[in-house]
């Protein structure tokens, strides 16, 4: 399924926003070395949508974290919008995340001490946007939470929390959006609604979407899927 027009998709595909090259991640536990990701390679073009699927413990989340600059690889390279993440300090990667990246988490990960509106305002304020409040209100209206602005996360349902999280993810107009099991903690009906919302906003904003999921139906909605097993890339499925 193509959410972008076919011509536009093929044009953009030639410009990579993410390039993963021989990516390996190992953990040391005592004398034992555990390889979680082993020599993974793939590319994602601007505006493309990619799903990462695989069984539990296969290394999906580790891969997402490395691609988003949340962690550093043991070897190999991640080029995000032309910048090599492994050469950056943590603060430099933080700046990249703020400028280019949006996140949606399985557990919503809202700041419990902030209201829905304030949660969405944070990335905008970090970018020193003067219109942070207006933009956040607009986004919350888009996700259908105009009447929940002053509610704290513990006063919202799971679906509502995930919608706040989506609004926050799109707030800084990211070039690339990472979603980790975005519907994993929601019932089927709410999950479907959240899913539609992600794809709808993704299309409207022209963002690149990378999502980790167990849900093959959800994976089928992306342009391409990659399958990870035991830390190795099994196959890349182009949509």
């Amino acid at each position: 399924m193509f959410l972008l027009g076919k011509d536009k998709y093929f044009y953009l595909k030639s410009m990579n926003v993410l390039k993963v090259d021989n990516l390996t991640k190992t953990y040391r536990s005592g004398n034992r070395e555990l390889t979680v990701l082993d020599q993974v390679n793939f590319e994602v073009a601007i505006g493309d949508t990619l799903s990462i699927v695989g069984p539990s413990g296969s290394g999906k989340t580790t891969l997402l974290g490395l691609c988003a600059g949340l962690d550093v690889a043991s070897s190999g390279s991640v080029m995000l919008d032309g910048s090599a993440l492994e050469k950056m300090t943590e603060d430099q990667r933080a700046a990249v995340r703020n400028q280019l990246v949006g996140f949606i988490f399985q557990n919503f990960q809202l700041l419990q001490t902030l209201t829905a509106l304030e949660n969405v305002m944070v990335p905008l304020e970090l970018k020193k946007r003067k219109d942070a409040k207006d933009k956040a209100m607009e986004l919350l209206e888009k996700v259908g939470l105009a009447d929940r602005l002053t509610h704290y996360p513990n006063q919202l349902s799971g679906g509502e929390q995930q919608r706040v999280s989506i609004a926050r993810a799109f707030a800084n107009e990211p070039k690339i959006l990472f979603a980790d099991e975005p519907t994993g903690n929601l019932d089927t009906e709410t999950g479907e609604m959240v899913e539609n919302l992600i794809f709808q906003l993704n299309e409207e904003e022209g963002t690149t979407l990378i999502l980790v999921t167990h849900d093959l139906e959800l994976a089928a909605r992306t342009h391409q899927s990659i399958h990870i097993k035991g830390g190795k890339l099994q196959e890349a499925i182009n949509g």
Binding site: A94, Q99, F103, V122, L126, R168
Partner: peptide, 12 residues
């Protein structure tokens, strides 16, 4: 919360 803020690009 600290981890979320780090994700959102806030410096330590």
């Amino acid at each position: 919360s600290v981890a979320v803020l780090r994700c959102l690009g806030v410096r330590s």
